[in-house]
């Protein structure tokens, strides 16, 4: 168990509203091993970004963690004080957001921001910090890094800015990088470059990555394992290749079929009827049951928890042992 870096158990995030308590995340459990890239996919509102925010303790009030535990390297971090959490953020867990402009301060040069981050977390001189910063920028593929380091964020293009953000995230040599839709705002050609940089640097440094995205293609290119979220719950988690080639959960199956690909022949896309329920009216039993083409009675009353199935875990009664026996 030593190689597990992050362990999330039965995580619940709730938002009290006038209509009652909304459960945005409902019993999410997963592990990330050291050096592993875990992809987290789901549609908007499924809770992917919320999971990232919960881990780094940045849930917007009035939202709160309503249950479960988060451990980082064996140490519990979901109940830490604001100050203790701040020490972990940036140092041991770093974030890369969708919009690089929100992560960079427009009033300071790249050098100032990088050097400050490095010196906050590592005990080095200003000279050393600057050299490290230049090396980092070089690593993320910024041409003429030693010259461009004194530029301001607005002097970089969108793709270059995202590279700077990645440099900033890696500056303190974190154990875990949480990347929340890091390429969504970028063009495909730039996206490919950024994925490449992120993947390469994290594996060189042995950092684990939690890659949050709605884009299955990005996950396929990058991740080792993937967790599929639906309506705040974990539908399926397992090695990327297995999930993509042979989805177990009917939702994952539909999701994969609905993605148009370059290779596929000219037929209709698979279509999941309806839409993901709002958090205010999640159906009883399995959250997916009204849209599922393989639904049976049990799904409508009893909620499935993720159950092991080969290399994977899947929250679907089709894979319950009794069900499998009965089918045989």
């Amino acid at each position: 168990m030593d190689d597990v870096l992050l362990s999330v158990r039965d995580l619940v995030v709730q938002f009290p509203t006038r209509g009652g308590i909304l459960t945005a995340l409902d019993g999410i459990s997963f592990d990330i091993k050291r050096g592993e890239v875990l992809g987290v996919v789901g549609e908007s509102g499924a809770g992917k970004s919320m999971t990232g925010a919960a881990i780094i303790g940045l849930i917007e009030p009035p939202g709160r963690i309503g249950g479960g535990q988060i451990h980082l390297g064996g140490e519990r971090i979901d109940n830490l004080s604001m100050d203790d959490m701040r020490a972990i953020r940036g140092k041991r867990i770093a974030m890369v957001f969708q919009d690089p402009l929100t992560s960079l301060n427009p009033l300071f040069t790249i050098a100032e921001q990088l050097v400050e981050t490095i010196q906050t977390h590592l005990n080095v001189s200003a000279r050393e910090a600057r050299d490290r910063a230049i090396a980092l920028l070089d690593d993320v593929g910024i041409p003429a890094a030693s010259r461009r380091i004194d530029d301001y964020p607005h002097q970089f293009s969108g793709g270059m800015r995202q590279r700077v953000v990645i440099a900033l995230a890696l500056a303190a040599e974190p154990d875990l990088v949480i990347a929340d839709e890091p390429t969504t705002a970028l063009d495909v050609s730039v996206q490919a470059q950024i994925i490449d940089v992120l993947k390469r640097l994290c594996s060189e440094r042995g950092a684990s990555v939690m890659l949050i995205t709605h884009d299955m293609g990005v996950i396929a290119e990058t991740a080792d394992r993937v967790a599929v979220l639906y309506a705040g719950r974990l539908a399926e988690i397992g090695p990327v290749r297995d999930v993509i080639k042979d989805a177990l959960h009917p939702y994952t199956h539909g999701l994969m079929g609905s993605i148009p690909t370059l290779a596929q022949e000219d037929d209709r896309l698979v279509q999941i009827p309806g839409a993901m329920p709002r958090l205010t009216d999640i159906p009883d039993g399995c959250a997916f049951n009204p849209r599922c083409d393989r639904v049976f009675d049990r799904c409508r009353v009893e909620r499935p928890d993720p159950m092991p199935h080969g290399t994977r875990q899947v929250a679907c009664w089709l894979y319950d042992e009794q069900q499998i026996k009965a089918a045989e």
Binding site: S189, V190, D196, V240, I244, K245
Partner: peptide, 24 residues
């Protein structure tokens, strides 16, 4: 060619991408 090359490969054929050069 470059655009097609940059599209993430969902088929997981494992083919190597040639790295996209430069920016617009």
């Amino acid at each position: 060619r470059m655009l097609l090359e940059a599209v993430p490969d969902l088929e997981m054929t494992g083919k190597e991408h040639s790295v996209v050069k430069g920016e617009i």
